[in-house]
């Protein structure tokens, strides 16, 4: 799951990126509203975390512009501004949530999950499919009532497959999802991770669609 982080303070952004990665998300960082607009239009993000005090202007306009461009990605505003008027303005122009700095990462993590859950029209953070059960909150995974230990990247990939079952995900998509813009496109890391997932679960769960990508078969084993 990719998250766009728009924050101009380098130190803060650095900490957020570390944290988001550890939470099993793939954050992409940009520092200005202009970059954020371009990134949001061209990429498939699950969430935007937006600071309001950006160097190239007030981010409220960016929210409105994104919504005008029919981009429905949930927007979480994370800002130092605590005035009610700013909160109202941000929520009214299309933001989905508003958090005031300083934030507790546990709350941030919970709110990110809530926003994604709502976007994906789920009622809880447990995914059940093809005999696999994946807890998005504590990253625990069971396959046929057996505990499976996943690495961070394996978790990220499996989550994507389970959120989009029976749909082909291209290699490039998967690379972006787990490595982001800085990913090494030449490596065969994705193949390695999928190989490992198949080994930990079942060889038939993730099907290779030759020349296109991979697909999770929901009806597996039925």
């Amino acid at each position: 799951m990719r998250i766009l982080l728009v924050e101009d303070d380098e130190l803060l952004a650095q900490g957020m990126i570390t944290r988001l990665k550890r939470m099993g998300y793939q954050p992409e960082h940009c520092t200005t509203g202009k970059q954020a607009m371009l990134a949001a239009k061209d990429n498939n993000f699950a969430l935007i975390i937006l600071d309001l005090g950006l160097p190239d202007g007030f981010a409220l306009e960016i929210i409105a512009q994104l919504r005008q461009a029919a981009i429905t990605i949930p927007i979480l505003v994370l800002t130092a501004q605590s005035q009610l008027e700013t909160k109202l303005a941000a929520l009214n122009s299309g933001a989905d949530d508003y958090l005031v700095k300083p934030i507790d990462v546990l709350e941030l993590e919970a709110r990110i999950r809530v926003l994604c859950r709502r976007q994906q029209q789920r009622t809880d953070d447990r995914l059940h499919l093809a005999g696999i059960s994946l807890n998005l909150q504590n990253h625990q995974c069971q396959f046929q009532q057996r505990d499976v230990t996943l690495t961070r990247r394996e978790f990220m990939l499996l989550k994507e497959f389970m959120l989009k079952p029976d749909r082909i995900l291209s290699r490039q998509q998967l690379e972006e999802l787990s490595y982001g813009w800085d990913g090494d496109n030449e490596s065969n890391a994705i193949e390695v991770h999928i190989h490992n997932l198949r080994k930990k679960l079942s060889a038939d769960v993730i099907k290779t669609v030759r020349g296109v990508g991979y697909m999770l078969v929901s009806q597996y084993g039925v």
Binding site: D9, L11, L12, G15, A80, V100, P102, I103, D104, V105
Partner: peptide, 24 residues
């Protein structure tokens, strides 16, 4: 006061966030 508290929030966030990162 508004400006000052606003300005103090960002460094405070940095401290809190990285401290929590450090603990895990």
């Amino acid at each position: 006061i508004a400006d000052a508290s606003h300005e103090l929030r960002t460094p405070l966030s940095i401290l809190q966030l990285h401290a929590q990162n450090l603990s895990s």
